[in-house]
């Protein structure tokens, strides 16, 4: 399967005057875990809805597993798993019943994958879904999704609201399941710690636009943190190359910039910096700085 798992071209979605997706061109190759990050309202959910055919795009095209998203057939849906943050499952059904229903529905049911994942949790077949704890419910949902042998598994903030133990169990059952190795995982989360641990690939969305698509360490490497001592005011943000974010702390200027090498020190000196030092940043800070770019930040200019 050399074709792209997800492929969008110039994808836009407008709600009224607001663009939830804006000319998004995204290509995701098969295999591995792809993390999708973005602030709330960056268009992640809209993207998933379009990919699964629940919304139609205002412009552009979207394909999943080579099929146009607005024309997914039931057999295409077999190949795409979707897990959302609520872990929507029929509350009134027993674990056993729901499992046997899914087993009937999915031809490629992988009982081993189910047992492997569910083994991480204390879920009894006779329990009703509404009686499960949040963590158990998440695990059960993941077990169902993986046992369907999907080629693409979309996880939309699956660990939201889980405690530390449940979160760890969830991530482990996802990462070390054999079923995961045969599918492409799109993992959407706000928790950088999780993403650092599990992602092979990082996709950053902002205001419906694709901002970055690379392995996480490459992404981190693009962002540098400069600390310099500039008397009076620093240079105007608009004039700073690769500017993402700045802070003034204890009289020192902190700049987060994108794709800048040692030459940036020269730039700072030419703007009156007495000293300029560069630091690498963690993924958390990198993403934060990146997404802060278009947010209003208080300027400490006094």
């Amino acid at each position: 399967m050399s074709q792209l798992v997800i492929e969008t071209e110039g994808l836009s979605k407008r709600f009224g005057n607001k663009f939830a997706l804006d000319d998004l061109s995204l290509a995701i190759a098969p295999g591995r875990i792809h993390a999708l990050v973005g602030a709330n309202g960056a268009g992640k959910s809209t993207l998933f809805r379009i990919l699964l055919g629940f919304l139609s795009p205002s412009a552009g095209t979207a394909r999943v597993l080579g099929r146009d998203c607005s024309a997914l057939t039931p057999s295409d849906r077999t190949l795409v798993g979707y897990v959302n943050e609520e872990h929507t499952l029929p509350e009134w059904m027993r674990v056993r019943e729901l499992k046997s229903m899914r087993q009937r529905e999915y031809k490629g049911w992988n009982a081993r994958a189910f047992d492997e994942v569910i083994g991480h949790y204390q879920v009894l077949p006779e329990q009703r879904v509404r009686e499960l704890s949040r963590g158990e419910r998440a695990g059960f949902n993941l077990a169902l999704a993986l046992a369907q042998s999907p080629q693409l598994l979309i996880l939309d903030e699956p660990t939201l609201g889980l405690d530390v133990v449940a979160k760890r169990a969830f991530l482990e059952s996802l990462m070390y399941s054999n079923a995961t190795e045969h599918c492409t995982v799109i993992y959407c989360s706000h928790q950088m710690e999780e993403i650092e641990r599990i992602a092979d690939d990082l996709i950053v969305l902002e205001r419906g636009r694709l901002m970055s698509h690379s392995p996480p360490d490459e992404f981190c490497a693009r962002i540098s943190h400069w600390i310099c001592d500039i008397p009076f005011m620093g240079p105007e943000p608009a004039t700073i190359p690769g500017y993402l974010m700045r802070q003034k702390l204890d009289g020192l200027h902190h700049y987060f910039v994108l794709d800048q090498d040692a030459a940036f020190a020269e730039f700072l000196r030419s703007n009156g910096a007495r000293s300029a030092n560069c630091m690498p940043v963690s993924l958390d800070r990198a993403v934060n700085a990146f997404l802060a770019k278009n947010h209003a930040t208080p300027t400490h200019s006094r």
């Binding site: 809805r49 699964l52 629940f54 039931p74 057999s75 849906r77 077999t78 795409v80 979707y82 959302n84 609520e86 929507t88 499952l89 529905e105 999915y106 031809k107």
Partner: peptide
Amino acid sequence: PNPWLSLIHRPRS
């Protein structure tokens, strides 16, 4: 939206 997605997104028409 979420339950609707869960309901329709299955291998049946």
